[in-house]
Structure formats: structure tokens, C-alpha cells
């Protein structure tokens, strides 16, 4: 285990972490403010990936494709909120789970009808491919560095919006006491629609960034959704700060676990025992972490409501 490898794996963990954060930010706000369990959040991830691929091919410009896809996912998110989810705020969580699971099926089939069940071809412009020599001997894919930069920039922007603007104040107030915000004359419905739309756009951003390196096909959003749910449970539901901390913790734990658990076990166990236990333990690591956090701090690390 050399220092460069540890550094490289740390970058990998950071990259996975910011991706999870983009997904978790929207989901945790929706959960915290509207008290809505939205399983269809992964569908916006898929919508973002498909729209970006479509618009990039249609316009020939990657950046234009990204902007159109973000706007498109925002519109889809607002439409879903207005048409389907408005009616669910007063219902129980189980009703919400059932309804948003239905939305997952709807979006997956819609994608299959429009683009087919097979994974579609996605690519990057030339200026985003290739790798960067960070130090002598440490080559890192340029695109992954861009993902880290975009993720951190969005995290900074979100912090600014939530902590320093009037809208952010309403969001924070909504997360701690919804009834009081409504009683003060704030248009809670509009606030809900806005938050939901921007949450969807953030998921779309994560999806469109993951498209060129993962698989763009119906059902792609459900694969990442489980990890995102772990993130918001660890971070504390409704808290942006918690989402960031949770995402980075999960990203790091998962990556470093996959890379180093087996070699470390091999130093104490027999090689064959390490071979059997290593991959199993590495894939359980984030769930173990979640269980520990739930046992010690049931509200998560950074609960929204103190």
C-alpha cells in the first residue's frame, strides 16, 4: 500500500461522495420540509441522463445539452409535484411509498418506450476525456476531477442559498416547523414546488454526469437510490449539512472499504478467509455504519430539528 494509491483512492471516495451528495441534497430537503418519502427521486437521475444524452446529440454541444437537460429535469420535477405528489402530502408514508414506487415504474417504462430497453450510447466531448498527471506516477481521469469540482461548487452554492438568502431561510424554517411557516403567511405550496423542482434538477445533474461513465438505461436510478437513502439516514433527514457529511462519509467508506478491507484482513486472517470475508464485509460496510449511527444518534449526525 503506497501513499499514491491511498491518495488516489481518497479522490475516488471524494468523487463518489459528491455524486451521492447531489442526489441526497434534493431528497433530504423534500423529506425534511414536505415530510414526503419520494422513492421516485432516482427517476429524475435517469431523466437527467437521458435528456443530456438526447440534447447533446441533437445540438452537438455538450454544455448546451447539459443546460437543456437541467432545465428539462426541473420542468419534469415541477410537473410531477403538481400532478401527482400534491395530493399525497396529507397521506401516510406508506401511501407515499406506494405512489412514488408507481412513478418509478411509469418513468422506467416511458424511457423504455422512448429509447428502448437497451443501454444507449453516451459519450463525452474530447476536452473532457483523457487524464491529468497530478503527481509523477499518479494519473487521474480528467472527467472525474470535473465531477469533484462541480459537486463541491454546487455544495458551496447550496450552502450560500440555504444559509444566506431569504429562500434559504424559508427552507430552514420549513424544515424545523412547517405549520408555523404557513401561519406566517408564506405560500408553502409554491415553496414546496420550488424545492421539489430544484431537488429534481440536482438529481438530474448527478444523472447526467454519471451517464458517460455508467450505464444509461431504464432503471438506472434505483441502483444509486439505496445508497442515497443510507446517506440521508446517516446525515440526518432534512439537513443539507448532514447530506454533505453523510455523502462524503459513505463515499469514502465504500471506496476505501472496497480497496483496502481485503488486503487488511489478509494480514490477520488466512488468504482464503480474507478472500471470502473481504468482498462481503466491504459491501456491508456502509450499512454497518448506518446501523452504528442509528444506534448512537437516531436523528442522524446533523439533525435538522434540534
Amino acid at each position: 500500500m503506497n501513499l499514491f494509491l491511498v491518495l488516489e483512492q481518497t479522490l475516488n471516495g471524494l468523487q463518489l461522495g459528491v455524486m451521492l451528495f447531489l442526489m441526497a441534497a434534493g431528497l433530504t430537503l423534500v423529506f425534511g420540509i414536505m415530510n414526503l418519502v419520494n422513492l421516485a427521486h432516482g427517476s429524475f437521475y435517469m431523466v437527467g441522463a437521458y435528456l443530456a444524452t438526447y440534447f447533446y446529440q441533437a445540438t452537438g454541444s455538450y454544455l448546451l445539452g447539459v443546460l437543456l437537460a437541467l432545465a428539462g429535469t426541473l420542468v419534469v420535477g415541477v410537473a410531477v409535484e403538481l400532478v401527482a405528489l400534491r395530493t399525497l402530502y396529507d397521506r401516510g408514508h406508506l401511501d407515499q411509498v406506494l405512489a412514488t414506487f408507481g412513478l418509478i415504474l411509469f418513468f422506467n417504462e416511458l424511457a423504455a418506450i422512448l429509447w428502448g430497453r437497451a443501454a444507449i450510447y453516451t459519450t463525452l466531448p474530447d476536452y473532457l476525456t483523457g487524464h491529468v498527471e497530478l503527481f509523477a506516477g499518479l494519473r487521474y481521469p480528467l472527467y472525474r476531477l470535473v465531477i469533484i469540482a462541480v459537486g463541491l461548487a454546487v455544495a458551496g452554492l447550496l450552502w450560500f442559498v440555504v444559509a444566506r438568502t431569504r429562500l434559504g431561510m424559508l427552507i430552514r424554517a420549513g424544515a424545523s416547523n412547517r405549520a408555523m411557516v404557513a401561519a406566517l403567511g408564506v405560500n408553502v405550496r409554491l415553496l414546496y414546488t420550488l424545492v421539489f423542482g430544484f431537488g429534481a434538477a440536482l438529481a438530474g445533474l448527478a444523472g447526467l454526469m454519471s451517464g458517460p461513465i455508467h450505464v444509461v438505461q431504464p432503471g438506472m436510478g434505483e441502483l444509486i437510490l439505496i445508497e442515497v437513502l443510507v446517506v440521508i439516514v446517516i446525515g440526518g433527514i432534512g439537513s443539507i449539512r448532514g447530506a454533505l457529511a453523510g455523502a462524503l462519509i459513505v463515499g469514502m467508506a465504500d471506496t476505501l472499504g472496497r480497496a483496502f478491507v481485503r488486503p487488511m484482513l489478509a494480514t490477520v486472517l488466512s488468504p482464503s478467509a480474507a478472500d471470502a470475508a473481504g468482498p462481503a464485509l466491504a459491501s456491508m460496510l456502509i450499512y454497518l455504519l448506518m446501523a452504528i449511527v442509528l444506534a448512537l444518534k437516531p436523528q442522524g449526525l446533523f439533525p435538522a430539528r434540534a
Partner: peptide, 12 residues
């Protein structure tokens, strides 16, 4: 992991 989508850690 079965169904894993990101292999960057393993490729490193």
C-alpha cells in the same frame, strides 16, 4: 458487488 456500477476504486 453484483450490480455495481462504479469500478474506479478497483481499477486504481
Amino acid at each position: 458487488r453484483l450490480g455495481q456500477t462504479d469500478y474506479q476504486a478497483e481499477l486504481s
